[in-house]
Nucleic acid binder design. Structure first.
Length: 280
DNA sequence: ACGGATGTTCGCGC
DNA sequence: CGCGCGAACATCCG
């Protein structure tokens, strides 16, 4: 489930599993995840390299190895990193394995929307897709003022703007849906028409949604807290179309924005009205 | 079985 | 040029 919280979690896992360790062997079957790069080049360059640091930028992972070797990794829609004992069979859909001592760290991605790419470590932060990323609501304070500046004068839907990594980092369909419901803002509102006080509520809502999701992830990774009800939807609005809003009991509705389904409460999140624009 | 899914990128048209 | 839209990518799950 890769949005900011999941990718942050993945970064923490990779740090715990591999930072300070040397990759004795890398395995990379040819797959779309490599985006045309030669598997042999990837595995040869990673072999013998020691992982020094892992950073997250929006939904990207930056792996800094010694000898100026860097790996850019994105989880796409279904990617995840898993730890296994070395020698144990790799999970299905493993696209890259980094073996170190007794452990093996596998990148698993059934749909292959994710990617891994070698670069010089010194170049990772300057890659075009990394350089354009906006402020990160987990690493820095993103309040109403900054949010308003980043959204600018665009008339596109506030939800589409929120999901644009150049505006703000790490917000995907789940977080955007959750935060807009918390802030009581209709997802189709023109971004430029969202008021300063609404932006303040939205900034708080983004932080709260991230915190909740990260708490859920931390609990999940602790076996003692495994839910007996894993089928439950842990979200407040996402995936709840037809169910009653927990604030006002009105059934959630949905619409498509930027090609993504967008659940909203028609009562808590009133629709934008053309009449209001004409009156101005 | 059919429809939809947490992301990104591309091409097209206005 | 900015922006919206739809498609594409490939597989799984309910």
């Amino acid at each position: 489930m890769p949005e900011l919280p999941e990718v942050e979690h993945a970064a923490g896992c990779l740090r715990a599993w591999l930072v300070g360790r040397t990759v004795d062997r890398a395995v990379a079957p040819a797959s779309r995840v490599l985006r045309g790069a030669a598997p042999a080049t990837l595995t040869r360059k990673l072999r013998g390299r020691r992982l020094r640091a892992v950073e997250r930028r929006s939904k990207y992972l930056l792996l800094f190895f010694d000898a100026d070797v860097g790996l850019l990794a994105h989880l796409g829609m279904t990617g995840k990193w898993v730890l296994r004992a070395r020698g144990e069979a790799a999970p299905q859909h493993t696209r890259l394995s980094l073996e170190s001592g007794a452990r093996a760290v596998h990148y698993v991605d059934p749909r292959m929307f994710g990617r891994v790419a070698l670069h010089r470590a010194a170049d990772l932060e300057a890659l075009p897709e990394i350089r354009v990323i906006g402020p990160d609501p987990h690493r820095e304070r993103v309040g109403a003022k900054l949010l308003g500046e980043r959204i600018g004068k665009t008339k596109r839907a506030i939800k589409v703007a929120l999901m644009d990594p150049r505006v703000i980092a790490g917000i995907g369909n789940i977080l955007a849906t959750e935060a807009l419901w918390r802030a009581r803002i209709h997802p189709a509102r023109p971004a430029s028409a969202v008021t300063a006080s609404e932006l303040a509520a939205l900034a708080r809502a983004i932080r709260a949604s991230i915190r909740l999701q990260m708490g859920t992830l931390a609990a999940e990774s602790d076996a003692t807290y495994l839910s007996e009800d894993a089928s439950d939807n842990p979200f407040l609005a996402y995936g709840r179309v037809g169910e009653p809003c927990s604030r006002c009991q009105t059934p959630f509705e949905t619409m498509i924005l930027g090609g993504r389904s967008s659940a909203f409460c028609p009562r808590c999140q009133p629709a934008p009205r053309r009449a209001a624009q004409r009156l101005r």
